[in-house]
């Protein structure tokens, strides 16, 4: 099986030759593979596409996450973003100061300024090598938090919950527009990132009130064109059963989630993707830690199928390259189905 066939087989509910490996390697790690700094690739999407392709080629995992040009998604909605050196991009200003600014939310043009060109480029090179390529979009909840500013946004939960709903509804078309544009580039799937929706940030009740309805609506529209992977950072255990109802084909889980306990919560038919600790294991651990973590993940999730080995979150620029190589090596060693 080629890499792409392997992931597609899992999405189709079939058992592949081996568990696919699709770590969350994006603009935080990949630029160093081609000797560039993150801020260079932030300003030059083609640099980012080439870095992602080079990382895919060098380490031999099965799929890549294509970021748009001007990498950070807040930029799509006009939020100013700064990045320096290898730092992660930081949103330095917001668009919506309060209810009175709701009309400042504008529908983005995802194609403007060549933003989709890096995605197209990675789709071409990735598919040439028979790799699976995933486009990346932010959820309505995350876009709303970004345009409002996280603190103001979450303060509004109690101070003005109606406004929170109105704001998320206002940015939901942006998620759909970006997602549809990504689908048009030919990506095999879209990952919808919801970085602030986990039970490490908000209560499960707030997830059900402010996140789930809009996630489900956006996924419902997008999945007509392309399968959707739903990523929630940190601990999503208390809301996994809800996430399984969004219509997402894949749930991408961060390291705090107990993989073994996840399957009964989400039921059959949904692919689980995760969840090696990108920080403690891939960045700060050694090769032995990688092996132990990969083996534990396979023991917990491989046998029932419907599993993609991944990091729980983005691999950082500080992660040693030998650890990424070890992740793939042990993933192959422990991921095979044929001899089981």
């Amino acid at each position: 099986m080629t890499s792409r066939e392997r992931v597609l087989a899992v999405l189709a509910g079939e058992k592949p030759d081996t568990v696919p490996i699709v770590p969350v390697i994006d603009g935080w790690f990949a630029p160093k593979v081609i000797g560039r700094k993150n801020d260079e690739c932030f300003l030059d999407g083609i640099c980012l596409a080439d870095a992602l392709a080079a990382s895919l080629e060098k380490f031999g995992y099965d799929g890549a996450v294509a970021e748009m040009g001007l990498g950070p998604q807040p930029n799509v909605l006009g939020c100013p973003v700064e990045i320096e050196g290898n730092d992660v991009p930081l949103v330095v200003d917001t668009i919506v100061g309060g209810r009175e600014d709701l009309d400042k939310v504008r529908m983005p043009d995802p194609w403007a300024g060549g933003k989709m060109e890096p995605v197209r480029r990675l789709v071409e090179t990735g598919h040439d090598g028979d790799r699976f390529v995933i486009g990346s979009v932010r959820s309505p909840f995350e876009y709303a938090a970004t345009v409002r500013g996280l603190i103001g946004f979450m303060t509004d939960f109690y101070a003005d919950p109606d406004f929170v709903h109105q704001l998320i509804a206002a940015v939901k078309p942006a998620t759909i527009a970006v997602g549809m544009a990504l689908a048009e580039t030919g990506v095999d799937a879209i990952v919808m990132k919801d970085s602030f929706a986990s039970s490490s940030m908000i209560s499960p009740d707030h997830y059900r009130e402010f996140v789930f309805p809009y996630e489900a609506q956006a996924i419902g529209e997008l999945k007509e064109s392309v399968p959707v992977i739903l990523h929630v950072c940190r601990n999503s255990m208390p809301i996994l059963a809800d996430m399984a109802q969004t219509g997402a084909a894949v749930l991408e889980m961060d390291s705090p989630v107990d993989l073994g306990a996840a399957r009964p919560l989400v039921g059959a038919g949904i692919v689980l993707k995760g969840n090696i600790d990108a920080d403690a294991v891939v960045e700060k651990g050694g090769v032995a830690d990688i092996e132990a973590a990969v083996k534990a993940a396979m023991d917990a999730a491989k046998q029932e199928g419907g599993f993609i080995l991944s990091t729980g979150d983005s691999v950082s620029v500080e992660a040693p390259e030998e650890n990424v190589a070890a992740l793939v090596r042990f993933g192959r060693q422990y991921g095979g189905y044929l001899n089981d």
Binding site: M154, T155, Y158, I202, S203, H206
Partner: peptide, 14 residues
């Protein structure tokens, strides 16, 4: 202890 989340902390901050 998981009784409060970020919005509850921000409510107190306000």
């Amino acid at each position: 202890t998981g009784e409060y989340f970020v919005p509850e902390m921000l409510r107190s901050a306000e």
